Simulated assay, not measured.
Amino acid sequence: MVRDGLRMAVGTLTALPVPAPTSIDRRVAGTAMAFAPLAGVVLAAAAGLVVGLGVLVGLPALVVAVLGLGTVALATRGLHLDGLADTADGLGASYDRERALEIMRRGDAGPTGVATLLFVVLLQVGALAAAISAGVGVVAIVVAVIASRVMVPLCCTRFVPSARPEGLGATVSGAVAVPIAAGIAVAVAAVSTVALFAGLAWWQGPVAVVVGWCVAAVLLARCIRRLGGMTGDVLGGCVEVSLAATLAILAV
């Protein structure tokens, strides 16, 4: 189960070629969602390397920020960005729940989704560019990428229902035990204190991580009220807004 869960996590949440799980059931899916931050370590390492090399060769901060975040987008096949756009379109649709879910299921981006995607990505790029200019770009992208993936297990506890009876949301809803999700969150928040060694204020690492989760929690709560629960798209949207908010605080 652990091996299949790890394969599902890496294969679903990154573009790395890994063997397919031998079986996928609720337990495997729950294990995969719990491993999401671990898959995020791979993404963070790649993005941190790109940012570090960009700074080393003297590229402008804005260019380095685009390259770093572009690496994350490519390494996830744009999965979470697509989820953010679809979630925004669904929330911006009529107040009919079924129509909103149908709009999200279609997958094409409407004006609300495009605008939301634009503003969130601009915030991510601007915040990372500011962090790079301050000399803390590598640690900022590493902490933000890993911390934002903690939203995946947090969204898969029993407190978050599925908006649909089928799909990824239904498979993983309630599949991660609350103590496990909480333990992952505490561990990542504690590890974020590594930002101290990059010259940031003592509070910035943990506060940035918690603020990112809180912003994502607001989006999640809105989706639960409006859509009846979460979907795979909502998971992606929560990851992206968490990433943006975390980077913003780290850029202070």
Rank of each mutant, 00 (worst) to 15 (best):
V145T: 15
T87Q: 05
L67M: 14
A198T: 09
R77K: 10
C155T: 15
G54Q: 09
G169N: 00
S94E: 11
I184Y: 04
D233W: 04
G126L: 11
A93V: 03
V186F: 11
D86F: 02
A198K: 09
G237N: 01
G5W: 10
E98W: 01
G229N: 04
V136T: 15
G5S: 11
V191F: 15
V142Q: 02
A187E: 07
L168D: 04
H80M: 10
V28M: 09
S162K: 05
A198H: 11
L59R: 01
G40H: 00
L74P: 04
G236P: 09
E102Q: 15
L196Y: 01
A201M: 00
C155N: 15
P165C: 02
A127D: 14
L74E: 11
P153K: 03
A208I: 09
I146M: 12
G48R: 06
L67P: 05
L43M: 11
F197H: 13
A190T: 11
V215P: 02
G68Q: 03
V51A: 13
I146Y: 04
T246C: 15
S192Y: 02
D96Q: 02
M8C: 07
A182L: 15
A216Y: 09
V50K: 03
A100M: 02
T231H: 00
S23G: 13
V10K: 01
L43C: 05
V28A: 07
A32E: 08
L168I: 09
F119S: 09
G229I: 08
R222I: 12
T76G: 06
G236R: 00
P17I: 09
A61C: 05
P19E: 12
T231C: 05
G110M: 04
A115T: 14
V114G: 02
Q124N: 12
L118W: 13
L43S: 04
M1L: 12
L128C: 05
G90M: 05
P206R: 09
A130N: 10
D233E: 06
P60C: 06
V218A: 13
R158Q: 11
G92T: 00
V41A: 14
G54E: 06
C223N: 08
A245D: 07
A131K: 10
R99P: 00
L118P: 00
A175H: 03
A61E: 13
L122K: 00
L13T: 11
A47P: 06
I132M: 11
V160T: 13
R225E: 13
